[in-house]
Design a binder for these strands. Structure first.
Lengths: 229, 229
DNA sequence: GTCGAAGCAAGAGCAGTGCTCTCGTTTTTG
DNA sequence: CAAAAACGAGAGCACTGCTCTTGCTTCGAC
C-alpha cells in the first residue's frame, strides 16, 4: 500500500473520488443513459476536458461504477447472512437483502444485469467482485450440506460437460455435485431474473404483491436447492 | 379494414414501412443505443426532420420496433408448438425456438427484456402481443392437465393474493390453481432470464455448453411445472 | 373546376453529447 | 535550478434528438 507522497497525487485520488461520487449520483437519478460526462464536470465546476485526465472515456467511468455496484450488492448479500441461523433463514435474508438493494438502486441493477450499454465486455476485472453475491448463496448451501440438512428433490440430470472447470474452482472446497452446482447457477439466475422482472415492469399486470411473490420465489428456489423449510 | 384511398395515403404507409425496416436493420446492427433517427433518414435519402411526420419521436420508433419484436418472438414460440406431440416435446420445442430467436435477434431481445432505454412504459398496447410467448407455455401445460398428464412435485404454497385477477382472466378456461399459475410465471421468467444470462455474458465463465445447459434448464422447469419426461 | 386547407419535404437552427487538440500554468523530479 | 511531467481551460469537430419556418404538392369541399 503506497501512500500518496505528493500533494498532486493526493489531489488526484481525491478528485477521482469526487468525480465517481457525483457520477454515481447522476446515475441514480437519470440512469446510465442520462449520465453525462459534461454534466458531471459542470457540477464539479471544471472543464469537461479535464475529466479525461481521470477517466479515459465515458465507458471507463461506467465500468468504475459497475465495479462499485458489484461490490455493493455483494456486501449487501454478505452482510445479510448470519451463519449462526438456520439455512432457510439465511437464504431468505440474502434474497431479501439483494432485492432491497436492487429496488433502492435500480439504475445500478440495470447497469449490472440489464442490457450492456456500450460494447464493453468488462472481463476478468469484475469476475472476482461479481461473484460475491452468488457465492453467498453457495456458502449457505454448502453449510447446509455439511450439517446434513441438504435434501434436494429429484430432477433432470445435468451433464458435467455443460459447466466450466472454472466454476468448480470457484466453488472449491464446497464439494458440490454437478446437479447441485447447476441448481445453484439457476438459483442465482432466478434471484437476478425475478428482480429484473419486477424492476422492468414485466410483473405489472401479473403480480399483485411483489414482495409476497418474491418470497414465494425465494422459498421455491430454496426447496429446489435442497434447503428445507 | 379501410384501404388507402388516396395516393398520398398509400405513399404514407409505404414510407412508414420503409422507415421501420431500415430502423430495424440498424437496430440489429448497432443496438438500440446506436439507432439514430438521422442515420435512418440519411439512408432513405430524406431530411431528418421528415421522419417526424411519421414517428413523433425516437422513442416512438423504438416502441414500434418493440411491438414488432414482441410479435416475432410470439410467432416463433407459437410456430414451434405442435399440439399433436407429447407435452415435454412441445415444451422443449417452444423453449428452443424462443432461445434461437433471441440468439438471432439479440438486440431485439435486449429491447424487449433488457433495460428500458428511455422512460416509456409501453402500457396496455403491448399487453396483448407480449403475452403470446408465455401463453404458449400455458397452453401446453393446460393441455397436459386436461389429459391427466400433469404431475407437479410438491413445493411452497403461494398466496392467491400475490397474483392479480388480470392474470386469472388471461389464463381463462385453463383452470389453473394458484400454485400452477405461479409456477407458470416462474417458467416464463426463467426462459427469459436464462437467455438473458447467456446473451449478456453472465454465463461466460460458468457454462461450457450453453445449449446443453439451456436444455437442462428447460427440462428442470418442465418438471417443476408438472410436465413429465 | 377552383381554392383554401391540410399534408409534406427540406433546411436552418438550438441545445446537448463524447472526445481531441492546443496552450499556458503548476507541480514534481533529477 | 532547470527539464519534464501533470494539469485545467477553452476551442473545435462530428454527431445526436428535436423544433420551426418556408415553400410546394395533394386533397376535399364548394
Amino acid at each position: 500500500m503506497n501512500a500518496p507522497r505528493t500533494a498532486r497525487a493526493r489531489a488526484r485520488i481525491e478528485l477521482t473520488r469526487e468525480i465517481l461520487s457525483t457520477a454515481r449520483r447522476q446515475l441514480g437519478e437519470a440512469g446510465a443513459a442520462g449520465l453525462s460526462l459534461r454534466s458531471v464536470a459542470r457540477e464539479l465546476g471544471m472543464a469537461s476536458s479535464a475529466i479525461y485526465r481521470y477517466f479515459a472515456s465515458r465507458d471507463d467511468l461506467l465500468t468504475a461504477l459497475l465495479v462499485e455496484s458489484y461490490t455493493e450488492i455483494g456486501e449487501a448479500a454478505e452482510g445479510a447472512d448470519d451463519p449462526g441461523r438456520a439455512p432457510i433463514e439465511r437464504w431468505l435474508a440474502v434474497w431479501r437483502a439483494t432485492r432491497e438493494w436492487s429496488l433502492a438502486n435500480r439504475h445500478e441493477y440495470a447497469l449490472l444485469f440489464g442490457t450492456p450499454v456500450p460494447g464493453y465486455a468488462a472481463p476478468h476485472i469484475t469476475a472476482e467482485v461479481a461473484g460475491r453475491m452468488p457465492l453467498t448463496l453457495a456458502r449457505i448451501t454448502a453449510d447446509a450440506k455439511r450439517s446434513g440438512d441438504l435434501s434436494p428433490p429429484p430432477g433432470p440430470a445435468c451433464d458435467a460437460s455443460a459447466i466450466t472447470p472454472e466454476m468448480r474452482v470457484m466453488l472449491e472446497g464446497m464439494e458440490f455435485s454437478v446437479e447441485e452446482t447447476a441448481r445453484l447457477i439457476l438459483a442465482w439466475n432466478r434471484l437476478v431474473g425475478i428482480i429484473g422482472y419486477e424492476l422492468h415492469g414485466h410483473l405489472a399486470n401479473v403480480t399483485a404483491d411483489d414482495a409476497a411473490f418474491f418470497d414465494y420465489t425465494a422459498r421455491t428456489e430454496a426447496a429446489f436447492n435442497g434447503i428445507a423449510v
